[in-house]
Nucleic acid binder design. Structure first.
Lengths: 339, 339
DNA sequence: AGGATTCAGTGAATCGTTTAAGTAGCGTCA
DNA sequence: TGACGCTACTTAAACGATTCACTGAATCCT
């Protein structure tokens, strides 16, 4: 009922034109309510329903129109939070009748740009990006060609139509203060690779806060995933002067650290405290439940798609629209006083 | 270097033709190594490199060629295992230079078919489906139009080119035997909605094994997600004759059950045993670690894409190629003797 | 009333590629 | 020699929509 019967071969605009006794052009206009009398418009619409006509997105795209496809370029799909975001964005785009072309840069900034290009080649109407790579010239060209929204961190110098920004700095500060107030002094920060766009500012934030609180912070670059952090954690935690707390810049990273702790026979938080970042639904279920910093995935997805869709049917804003998401520290049992 | 310089406007085949002094047709042939002398082919290829020419996938698609886009239709993206599968499939497709159009049916079988249609409209070269819905006529049309591979459960009557099948029955049997051997008699099975394609056979498997083992099994339909199972579990576990074990047909479902247990003050496995299905990387980290049944996501993704890609550049097999993945029971601390 | 403007709709070009059909030029073979 | 078949191309017609430039009729203004 709701879904129109699926034809063997779709009706074309020419067939619809013949059926209504109009020219293809008139039909095209009618369907978008331009240029024609109300009566014909109605008639064409009815005929379109009857024949189950829907404009072919590919043909439309070739001519330069919209494809109803949005590209979603994810820095690392191995990251659980990012996976959640993909789901949320896909859902948001679905309500606006759009499809989602997903690409995973897998932590590689070269691949990231290459994929962005590929998405553009497929004529996506817009691009939502969770960047890994450092800002590069390539992005300017991309963002110029197709409306782009960044999530997580802006790409400086790139003319995005929207920027959904996490207040990572405050997140880092809150967590470090939390750890400091518990008595920790030696903290390892497992961060995104430091040369990435989120990495650099986060690194500075860590350094500033550490200085202010008198913490001995060591920043260690780390891949997003569980498997990326485990070996690193094994190494860090086997050292004689092992840190008393680990701040992981993603919950996925923290999960790998938990595994490493288990393997080394270390108890969390008695032997070492672990904190995540970007709370994943699973984190409350860990043993012990993981301290983390929460951002509302659904709202992030909503705002990002809103920015993009507004840019798609209005004109592009002169300046990126921007929304800053404050962190919410969720203190749980994985952080406690140092041994 | 590796990535060709991104032009402001892409070179067209006409420009390339002019550049080489050939006709567009000759260029088109040359680039696909048909019909032309070796010398011209070489010359055209060189010119293409020089101009950074790459055929426009949209124009190609309109004419009826391939788009290098594969549709991935997921029954429920809220399910963590499925999220992992999306990542793995995306990665596999990337190595063959293809992009992935992801659609989430969100547990709704009507939406599932509608989305399949939308993917076909976008001229995906092929379709990989993790079905939720019961087999329906719509699928036959879809599978006829575009090569389709099913994952998880075949769609009977649908001419897929490949079927990646989980041996759910044996998985159910193994788990129920495991529970039975621990001494359980009253087991609740939180399953996919029973009318779905995986639901029905799984239900029968449960009934048979339960009868053989003398178990009192109650099958409860349940949405895939953590949030779907929590309220259900709260209800089931508050009853006087509450089950001593819960078999959850997805780890995501199990996670919700764990939350419910915590809320009710029930200890796992002392008060109630919990088992998942389709192991997620997180499950070993829970408190207590979750008993589950593992399938290798990476291999599943590999086989599924292999089936599809083979069908894309060879001809379609007369009969679906098929691979059955046996389960691997991972017994952990979340299952123990009944109270 | 006559010229200008709007309205409703048509015809044809266009987007960038593929491919069926056609055409030279050349060699082969009866 | 002429029929035939190759090879290496070219020409032109798709694919399915959008849109620019028109046209004929009706309406408007002074």
């Amino acid at each position: 009922m709701a879904v129109p019967e699926r034809q063997k071969r779709r009706a074309t605009i020419r067939e619809l034109a013949e059926y209504t006794g109009l020219s293809p052009a008139a039909v095209s206009y009618a369907l978008r309510g331009m240029h024609v009398s109300a009566e014909t418009e109605e008639r064409v619409r009815a005929a379109a329903d009857e024949l189950g006509y829907e404009a072919d997105p590919i043909a439309r795209a070739l001519r330069g129109g919209a494809t109803a496809v949005v590209g979603l370029l994810v820095g690392s799909l191995a990251d659980f939070w990012n996976q959640e975001l993909v789901r949320a964005v896909e859902r948001e785009l679905h309500v606006s009748e759009r499809s989602t072309l997903v690409a995973d840069a897998d932590g590689d900034s070269t691949r990231e740009l290459e994929l962005a290009g590929r998405l553009v080649d497929h004529r996506v109407d817009g691009l939502i990006v969770l960047p890994v790579g450092p800002p590069s010239d390539g992005w300017e060209l991309i963002a110029e060609e197709v409306p782009t929204v960044t999530i997580g961190d802006a790409l400086p110098g790139v003319m995005a139509v929207g920027e959904v920004v996490f207040d990572n700095n405050r997140g880092v500060e809150d967590t470090l203060r939390h750890l400091s107030s518990l008595g920790h002094r030696r903290v390892a920060v497992l961060s995104w690779a430091v040369e990435t766009s989120p990495g650099r500012p986060a690194e500075r934030a860590v350094e500033e806060v550490a200085a202010a609180l008198g913490l001995d912070c060591r920043i260690v670059p780390c891949a997003y995933s569980l498997n990326g952090s485990r070996p690193l954690a094994l190494e860090l935690l086997s050292a004689d002067d092992r840190p008393t707390a680990m701040l992981c810049m993603s919950d996925s990273i923290a999960y790998g650290v938990c595994v490493a702790c288990a393997e080394l026979g270390l108890t969390i938080p008695d032997d070492v405290s672990v904190a995540g970042f970007g709370e994943h639904p699973m984190s409350r279920l860990l043993a012990p439940p993981l301290t983390s910093t929460a951002w509302d995935v659904e709202r992030v997805a909503q705002v990002a798609t809103r920015f993009l869709l507004d840019a798609l049917d209005g004109e592009r804003p002169d300046e990126p629209r921007r929304e800053l998401f404050p962190p919410r520290l969720v203190a749980r049992a994985s952080t406690g006083p140092p041994p």
